[in-house]
Nucleic acid binder design. Structure first.
Lengths: 183, 183
DNA sequence: TTAAATGCAAAGACTTTGCTGTTAT
DNA sequence: ATAACAGCAAAGTCTTTGCATTTAA
């Protein structure tokens, strides 16, 4: 969906820069986090940061490369790989595994949430809920552990009717990645 | 640990066979499941089935190959890969992903349980608990889904004291696979 | 007898890396 | 000026597969 910010670059010295190849890439939340983490903001990195910030789904490297390339062709997949790795180490990005062999990414700043994968369509829906972490923390405790992190993925099928989600739910549907989720 | 059954092959026609190369492999629970699923019981498959049945941990293909080869050298990794894939399709094996790039396996017949990965040692401890599935089923329902399956992994650290697990817990510690789980 | 299974090596899919040139600071 | 970064292609890791051969049923 990529709704770009498109603010005009009125003041070149105000920190807001753009990629030499296209004028549509501006500073983004993730680009700012990069700076805060002492990373150099190259044109490529700025584009990738922009793509990541705009992403409302969980793109894999190939998809990120596709989107970034569309904005600036001077980007190689190696750079995308290196960038997501770096950003993951910095805690800016979170790597996900929804099955299908390739890693998928999303901004950490999106807050903590879980994923439910529609087994029929491959679509990923996010949801927030405090109960799992409470339960799992208790379980870990009973086993003599302190919970450091956890992973939950639900694989499910849309129920017949289309009863919409309850109020506490924020459901962001993924774009389908022609996923190779075959048997 | 591999505590082999070692029953002497007194009656060659009684269905209990062994690998031509070594006398220690006999029918195993998983071998029986193979037969029930109409699979041919070759010497290699019998050995692999035996190894899987004896495994108390979650070996990856390389480890399975190592253990199987120790019992019968006429086994190739390709066969191990093909076998675990086949057995997974038949529902006999469950594939796990504990992070680290390689798939790990365990017998499905071990029943439903979850895993807690010790982030310090890499050891995997199993535990049973009915609450997560109840909670997650409810959550899925609220989102308009019917839960098909789910995945839960806890990453945790042993708590200072060694307060043992509560009564409802069956903790099976994994052998450490020199896991490359470092970031 | 014959479909299934195996071995071996080649190939695939995804990811990392060595090296050299470029660039943000 | 210089450490970080990027591109490219080679290499690495895990897994699958084509093909000729063997084998269980």
């Amino acid at each position: 969906m990529v709704v770009s910010t498109k603010s005009v670059d009125r003041n070149p010295r105000a920190g807001s820069r753009r990629s030499p190849a296209s004028g549509i890439v501006d500073d983004s939340p993730i680009a700012r986090l990069c700076v805060q983490n002492g990373l150099k903001m190259t044109g490529q990195r700025r584009v990738i940061a922009h793509v990541l910030s705009e992403a409302e789904d969980h793109p894999d490297v190939e998809e990120l490369y596709r989107r970034a390339s569309a904005l600036d062709s001077r980007i190689s997949v190696a750079t995308v790989y290196r960038t997501v790795r770096l950003l993951e180490e910095k805690g800016i990005l979170a790597r996900r595994d929804f099955g299908g062999g390739r890693a998928r990414y999303e901004a950490s700043e999106n807050g903590h949430h879980y994923h439910i994968i529609d087994v029929d369509s491959g679509r990923v829906v996010e949801f927030e809920n405090d109960e799992p972490v409470i339960l799992l923390t208790q379980i870990a405790e009973k086993l003599g552990f302190d919970l450091v992190s956890h992973r939950i993925e639900l694989f499910a099928r849309r129920r017949g009717g289309s009863r919409s989600a309850s109020s506490e739910t924020k459901a962001k549907s993924d774009s389908i990645n022609t996923e190779t989720s075959g048997s």
